[in-house]
Write a protein that binds this DNA or RNA. Structure first.
Ligand SMILES: [Mn+2]
Ligand SMILES: [Mn+2]
Ligand SMILES: [Zn+2]
Ligand SMILES: [Zn+2]
Lengths: 131, 131
DNA sequence: CCATTGTTGCAAATAATTCTCAACTGCATT
DNA sequence: AATGCAGTTGAGAATTATTTGCAACAATGG
């Protein structure tokens, strides 16, 4: 991940290295504040502003994805795993990942019919546990 | 629409009647500011705060839908037409509506497999015109 | 090691939306 | 039609998430 950044011409600073590590270790979808908190454990002087700036840099470099779920601050995850979409449990807030080849294909077809190429998309299911 | 509101126990004030009219006449997906501007034409003293409050009321009453497209303020439309999703032209910002019965069905299946019932969802295609 | 240019921390700024509160008004009831 | 009262409004302050200006600092290339 660090190499991917270097190749993209991004300077590797102490705080960027730290945030990359925090993101790599995360198995959830933390928001900027959560990442700031986690980074603090290793270096209490990284600022929240730097967290935000670094997240933008990492996103532009294509190494992380940003998700803005309904009404909540943006959440992040590394983009090293294959593409997937999310189901949000409205009771607990839990974020569950899924992937549907069929839906992905249908989306492309629909866009094509309208004369478009999809650059990216957003599919979120807000749901509650079955009766 | 006004009757639907009355039935929901919502008081019909001058400003609510006006905003309902503005929304009914809109054939695009205006945001709170645009709605405020349009309402001003008929009544220059409706406040932006009331626009926001009314939008919340109308949304809770189920007569309008709120869409929070990427990085933009929320946009609204009446929910009198059948459900559909949106493709956003990244160049022009144009919002194009579409509906896929298949995707809707697949979403429900996926949720069911995970033990969930979908309450609502969000499907947005960010795209650019083909070559 | 030096210079250059990008990065950081801090605080202040922004943008969208919500809230507080006193004045007002819809509407059910006399 | 007049009354009462709970709900609504306008104005502006507050809030939340995020961005930015700036002076001090640090990564990289030579
Ligand atoms: Mn994910
Ligand atoms: Mn629409
Ligand atoms: Zn997808
Ligand atoms: Zn849909």
């Amino acid at each position: 991940m660090e190499n991917a950044l270097r190749d993209a011409g991004v300077r590797i600073t102490r705080q960027r290295r730290l945030l990359v590590q925090v993101l790599a270790e995360a198995d959830d979808h933390p928001d900027a504040n959560a990442l700031h908190r986690r980074a603090h454990a290793n270096d209490p002087k990284v600022s929240l502003a730097t967290v935000y700036r670094t997240l933008s840099v990492l996103e532009e470099a294509g190494v992380i994805d940003r998700h803005a779920f309904e009404g909540k601050p943006a959440r992040f995850e590394t983009s090293d795993r294959p593409h997937h979409d999310h189901l949000i449990d409205l009771e607990t807030g839990a974020v569950i990942e899924f992937r549907s080849e069929k839906i992905e294909r249908l989306q492309a077809e629909i866009a094509a019919e309208l004369g478009y190429d999809i650059v990216h998309h957003r599919l979120e299911l807000y749901a509650r546990k079955q009766g």
